[in-house]
Simulated assay, not measured.
Amino acid sequence: MTQALIPPGTPETPQLMELRREVRDFLVAERDSGRFTPGVDSWITGWDPDFSQRLADRGWVGMTIPTAYEGHGRTFVERFVVTEELIAVGAPVAAHWVADRQAAPSLLRFGTEEQKQYFLPRIAAGECFFAIGMSEPDSGSDLASVRTKARQVDGGWKVNGTKVWTSGAHASEAFFVLARTSPLDPAHRHAGLSQFIVDLGSDGVQVRPIISMTGQHHFNEVHLDDVFVPDARVLGDIGGGWHQVTSELSYERSGPERFLCTFPLFREQARYAASHPERRADPDLGRAFSRLRGLHHMSRAVNAAVERGENADTAAAVVKVLGTTFEGDLIEEVHMSDAVGEGNPLLDAGLLQRPGFTLRGGTNEVLLGVIARGLGLR
């Protein structure tokens, strides 16, 4: 069953190892010069456009965007190596993350030529940031229940509704909005949904901050009041929104950010064990390392499957469930150990961020249903 569920991966070639070393050297220099402070959950909380720009200058944003659209034409596996190193060190990558991870692949797959020409070069240059408008108040992870509606008007569509937990919407140029374009049919709940590229500066758009317990502002509620979206900004086919969204979720659920965003804490735990001989045989540390290695190989395999154009939805859901569960367990283990002292900023941030790990990108309870259906168990 495991072989059927998890696709084959790819080996770490000398070229990939050299790329990994190059990224590590860059990150060490950036950190040691004080250009960033490592953080937990940095792909959500670490908004630093200048850092994203420095990555783009090195060709590490828009890596998989073809050169025809001023990207770098590199492989998904090469991008995986770069993103894994960025997340593991806790680099502030939130500004470009959604645009690079989700928006660019979706535009390449479903976008018009005009949309590709307009957005992709600026994403690759680290100049265009995106957010995602899927979740809604009171809808949880049930995307088929969205109440945002789009009605056709002369030259485009008028969109009305509210999206929530839209990370970075307050500082992004645009976001993908999932809206209902046909009345809900209870027998076919996934039909009648479409996606739109909404300019966040449009008339009728209100971005309301959601402040976290840490005092940080990265989540938002976005209210859409009769927002006009021209026909040229429909993403893909009208009525094809469900298929498009589920393909996006493979990118969102399977990446290294689903198991490495607490890695700075694991590093502290390992350093503590190295300096305390009595802790070197700590079974918790050994289990954590084994889980990390397994998740690395699984995530890498899903990444390779996406590059081959294979359906990896079920495998991506497995990575997300196992990865975010591991992240929460790691925080608890570090908290209960002596690896870091009271008031450690990484641990404090991890404890506060932990509840969101198994919620965003689909709750683990919902994803277990996705996995069961993918295995033919439901």
Results as ranks from 00 to 15, higher is better:
Gln3Met: 09
Gly9Val: 01
Gly9Asn: 07
Glu12His: 10
Glu12Pro: 01
Gln15Trp: 00
Leu16Pro: 08
Glu22Tyr: 00
Arg24Met: 09
Arg24Asn: 13
Leu27Gly: 08
Thr37Arg: 12
Gly39Arg: 00
Ser42Phe: 04
Ser42Met: 15
Trp43Arg: 01
Trp43Gly: 05
Gly46Ala: 08
Asp50His: 04
Gln53Leu: 14
Asp57Trp: 04
Gly59Arg: 01
Gly59Ile: 12
Ile65Val: 15
Phe76Glu: 14
Glu85Gly: 06
Leu86Ser: 06
Val89Ser: 11
Val93His: 04
Ala95Asp: 14
Trp97Thr: 00
Val98Arg: 06
Gln102Cys: 13
Ala103Pro: 07
Gln117Ser: 12
Tyr118Thr: 13
Ile123Ser: 04
Ala124Val: 04
Glu127Tyr: 05
Gly133Pro: 02
Gly133Ser: 08
Glu136Asn: 02
Asp142Thr: 09
Arg151Pro: 05
Gly155Trp: 03
Gly156Ala: 01
Trp157Lys: 04
Lys158His: 13
Lys163Arg: 10
Gly168Asn: 13
Ala169His: 04
Ala174Ile: 07
Phe175Asp: 02
Phe175Glu: 06
Ser182Asn: 09
Pro183His: 09
Pro183Asp: 14
Gly192Gln: 06
Ser194Met: 07
Phe196Trp: 01
Ile197Trp: 13
Val207Asn: 04
Val207Tyr: 09
Arg208Asn: 15
Gln216His: 10
His217Val: 09
Val222Glu: 00
Val222Asn: 03
Asp225Glu: 14
Asp226Ile: 00
Asp226Asn: 15
Val227Leu: 07
Leu235Thr: 08
Ile238Tyr: 02
His243Met: 10
Ser247Cys: 00
Ser247Tyr: 13
Glu248Met: 15
Tyr251Pro: 01
Leu260Ile: 03
Cys261Asn: 11
Ala270Thr: 07
Ala274Phe: 05
Arg279Gln: 13
Ala281Tyr: 05
Ala288Met: 11
Phe289Leu: 14
Ser290Ile: 01
Arg291Asp: 08
Leu295Asp: 03
His297Trp: 04
His297Cys: 05
Ser299Leu: 08
Asn303Val: 11
Ala304Val: 11
Val306Ile: 15
Val318Pro: 06
Val319His: 09
Thr324Phe: 02
Phe326Ser: 09
Glu327Val: 02
Leu330Gln: 05
Ile331Ala: 09
Gly341Phe: 08
Glu342Arg: 06
Gly343Tyr: 11
Pro345Gly: 03
Leu359Lys: 13
Gly362Arg: 03
Gly362Thr: 10
Val366Pro: 05
Val370Leu: 01
Ile371Glu: 01
Ala372Pro: 00
Leu375Gln: 14
Arg378Leu: 10
